[in-house]
């Protein structure tokens, strides 16, 4: 009788362990949300840099136009229409890339997936910077554009560092 009770208890404990193991297997290890939060913040900061640049560039473009139209064009810093167009197209492309990064971070089951996405974004922004440098005519626009692109890439690089990528 006592032996049967011990066997039943042992079987019960074994069953509970089996259940716990099954739960662990089915649910898997949760992603490190603290790291992903830092990565998401880095993505947000990258775009704060880009947005600041975008607003500054629009302001500079409008000021240059107004200055030139005032009839005293000497001393005006003019950003050509072509440059303004290239910059706004690049900025739009970067924001769309960043949305992909955000989706990737939100759905990342592993850090590796999020790192891959951040690295891809960094490469694409580098390419946009190279293209912009090739086509921008205004030295001022080119310089500001470079600073913003470097800022965005550095901010996104933080994601790779946080999540342990190389």
């Amino acid at each position: 009788m006592r032996t049967q009770a011990i066997e039943t208890t042992t079987a019960g404990i074994g069953c509970i362990y089996a259940v716990l193991l099954t739960v662990a297997f089915v649910t898997g290890c949760p992603a490190n949300t603290s790291q992903l939060q830092k990565a998401a913040t880095a993505s947000q900061q990258a775009m704060i840099v880009v947005q600041g640049f975008q607003q500054g560039e629009i302001l500079a473009y409008n000021r240059g136009k107004a200055c030139a139209a005032s009839g005293v064009p000497s001393g005006c810093i003019l950003i050509p229409d072509e440059d303004h167009l290239i910059i706004q197209q690049s900025v739009q492309a970067i924001a769309e890339i960043d949305k992909t990064v955000n989706t990737c971070i939100g759905g990342a089951g592993t850090s590796i997936a999020a790192v891959d996405c951040a690295n891809s974004a960094i490469t694409q922004i580098q390419q946009l910077q190279n293209d912009g440098d090739l086509h921008l005519k205004s030295a001022t626009a080119k310089q500001d554009f470079d600073i913003a692109m470097i800022g965005a890439r550095i901010a996104l690089s933080v994601i790779v560092t946080i999540l342990g990528g190389k």
Binding site: A40, T41, Q44, M47, I48, Q92, A95, N102, I105, G106
Partner: peptide, 24 residues
């Protein structure tokens, strides 16, 4: 909290995109 940060980041992206589209 992660989803809240991502939503804020996406809002900035959307603002940038709509501003750029208007300028273009």
């Amino acid at each position: 909290p992660l989803l809240e940060i991502l939503a804020a980041a996406n809002t900035i992206d959307d603002d940038i995109i709509s501003t750029a589209k208007a300028e273009i």
